[in-house]
Each structure stands twice: as structure tokens, then as C-alpha cells.
């Protein structure tokens, strides 16, 4: 069974005039289909206003479809009877670290979710301890949230979600208000939960460097899924990404510039090591690593230069 399945989702916001009367609608999501399998690490990229946050709120039944259907672990979000089970199974972390911590002591905040769903006291303590340990915040359990850094606060928020034993976590731009160190902390914590506990992670972000290790990337634009694929497939389409107002890694950009100048480089370069290997020839002994084999298969069998040309002409590569 899929963790999350979305079929023909449409979401309209009602626009109101100054007197508060409905004055037309704004379509935030326009016919999205997607599927997430259990245990996947998914990144949803898109610029502000592309509909990615609206999409996130559908996964936790904070918003309901105007048209179409969203299933979370097989449960239809429109069915009111499923509401609390969906919110427990698909936990959500929001952007502003200050506006989602309820209690004045770290451990009490982590206990808030379990309290709400009626977990017995002893079990709450066990879960709080485990959750704080999982995000590396156990030593701060007695502290006031006001004494923590942004990255630490977000890790507490993640622990608060984990304590409800969800199958899936949705992180809605969790790093937008953090500094680079805080960003790394949060992404590392989410990655660890995915790898070690098998929790499905859906990371919504506009920082491309956070999406590089994802299993699958969805790129949103104008309420639609504009691209989908592995990070390598997505970031190799430099021009298309620029059109969608997104970044690609600087290494990929440099490779792209060099290719334009006539160098024969693969389109799917993501790391500086790959670029240097391609420019100078691999060091002896690692000429045929699994990594480089994967690269070749990702280039979909076509000669790189041709694939590149195609991309330049059409302005869009393999669309989702």
C-alpha cells in the first residue's frame, strides 16, 4: 500500500473582499497526482506561491480537497472519522520554530501530542525520552524552549511529532528561518529518522541542497507538479530549473557552463568529486564505482551532448 496517494487534487482558496464576502477563488493546487511509498525520503521543491505548502496541509488533513482525493495510509482525508488517526500518522513540522512549541519545558512539549491522543502517563515518559534521543536533544529536556537555538527548537518540534509514533513526517519549510548550521542539524535529524526508523519523510523546501539526498523530488509550479525524478534527473536540467525560479548546485551549474563552452561532460554531475573526476579522468582504482554506473543509466542512454541540446531547444526535459 502507498503511504500517501493523491489523485486529481484541486484546491481553491476563497478570496474575500473588504467586507468579508466571497469574491471569487484562487486555485492553489491544480490537478496534482502523486504517490509516496512507505520509507521514502521525498523532497518537494518550488518557489513561494507554487502551492507546495498548501499541498503539505492536505497530507495532515488541515485542509480538505476542493476536488479529487487524498489518501494517507489508505484513509481518505475527507472522511471525518479518520481525522485524528491521519493527524497522528502523518505528523507535521512547520516553518516558524517559535509558533509551534506549546509548553515551557522541552520535555513537556514533546509530551503534548501523546497527551492529546490519550497515551498513558508511563508510556508518555518512555516516548518522550526516546523521541528526544532520536533527535539528539535529550540533554536539553529540562530547558525552556526560549533558551534554544532555532535548529534545536525545530528538532524539539520533530521530537514532538515522533512521540506520536507516526508513519510519516511532513516538514513544511522547516529550515526557512534558520542559519546554515541550524539547517544542517534539522535535515540530518530528519534523514536519520528516515534511515534508522524507516519513517517516511516529506520535506518541503526551496533550498536545493537539502533535496540532494532525497529518493525522489517533486518540483511544483503554479499548483502543478512540473517535474519529478531522482535528484540527478532533476538537477541536470539546469535551464528548466532556472525557469521554475529554483537553484541547482553550483557544481552542476559549473558543469553546465563548461558543457556550453564545448567540453564533453555528463549532464548529471552533482558533486565536486564527480566534476573533478570527469575533468581530469578518474583516479586509478575507482573508475567503475557503482556511483558512476548509476550515472550512466541516469543519462537515459542518450549521448550527453545530444540530451543537452534537446533540453536547450525544448526548455524542458523529462516532465513528470
Amino acid at each position: 500500500m502507498s503511504m500517501i496517494k493523491i489523485q486529481k487534487l484541486i484546491h481553491d482558496y476563497i478570496k474575500r473582499d473588504d467586507e468579508g464576502n466571497a469574491a471569487g477563488t484562487v486555485r492553489a493546487i491544480d490537478g496534482v497526482n502523486l504517490e509516496v511509498k512507505p520509507g521514502q525520503f521525498i523532497a518537494v521543491l518550488g518557489h513561494n506561491g507554487s502551492g507546495k505548502s498548501t499541498l503539505a496541509k492536505h497530507l495532515n488533513a488541515l485542509l480538505f480537497p476542493t476536488e479529487g482525493t487524498v489518501w494517507v495510509d489508505g484513509m481518505d482525508t475527507k472522511d471525518g472519522a479518520n481525522l485524528w488517526e491521519i493527524r497522528r500518522e502523518a505528523g507535521m513540522v512547520f516553518q516558524n520554530p517559535d509558533n509551534q512549541i506549546i509548553a515551557q519545558v522541552v520535555e513537556e512539549d514533546v509530551g503534548f501530542g501523546p497527551e492529546n491522543i490519550g497515551v498513558p502517563t508511563e508510556e508518555i515518559w518512555k516516548r518522550v525520552e526516546e523521541s528526544l534521543k532520536a533527535v539528539g536533544m535529550l540533554e536539553h529536556r529540562k530547558k525552556s524552549p526560549n533558551r534554544l537555538s532555532g535548529g534545536q527548537k525545530q528538532r524539539v518540534s520533530i521530537a514532538g511529532v515522533i512521540a506520536m509514533e507516526p508513519k510519516c513526517i511532513i516538514l513544511d519549510e522547516p529550515t526557512a528561518m534558520l542559519d546554515p548550521n541550524g539547517r544542517k542539524e534539522v535535515i540530518k535529524a530528519a534523514m536519520k529518522l528516515n534511515r534508522e526508523k524507516g519513517i517516511t519523510v516529506i520535506l518541503i523546501t526551496h533550498y536545493m541542497e537539502e533535496a540532494i539526498d532525497a529518493d525522489l523530488i517533486f518540483v511544483m509550479d503554479k499548483g502543478e507538479i512540473a517535474m519529478q525524478g531522482t535528484p540527478r534527473e532533476i538537477f541536470s536540467q539546469v535551464k528548466r530549473m532556472k525557469e521554475l525560479q529554483l537553484d541547482v548546485p553550483q557544481v552542476t551549474l559549473l558543469a553546465y557552463e563548461l558543457r556550453k563552452a564545448g567540453l564533453h561532460l555528463p549532464a548529471s554531475i552533482l558533486t565536486k568529486e564527480e566534476l573533478v573526476d570527469a575533468l581530469l579522468g578518474s583516479e586509478p582504482g575507482n573508475s567503475e564505482t557503482p556511483e558512476s554506473r548509476e550515472q550512466k543509466s541516469d543519462a537515459s542512454g542518450e549521448p550527453d551532448t545530444e540530451a543537452d541540446k534537446k533540453e536547450e531547444e525544448a526548455g524542458n526535459g523529462n516532465q513528470g
Binding site: L62, G91, F94, N99, G111, N116, W125
Partner: peptide, 27 residues
């Protein structure tokens, strides 16, 4: 107001629905 709005949504997302059926971490 923005904070209140955000917090209300965050509480709902964490299954808060008033005092009924709630247990206590520190009774």
C-alpha cells in the same frame, strides 16, 4: 495574531481537541 494562527494550526496538527480524553505526562 499571526503567531496565534500558526500555533492553533500546530496544535490541531498534533491532535489537540480540548480537555476530553487527554492524559497527563505529569499528573
Amino acid at each position: 495574531f499571526r503567531r496565534a494562527n500558526d500555533l492553533a494550526m500546530a496544535m490541531e496538527a498534533r491532535c489537540y481537541r480540548g480537555g476530553e480524553g487527554r492524559t497527563k505526562m505529569k499528573p
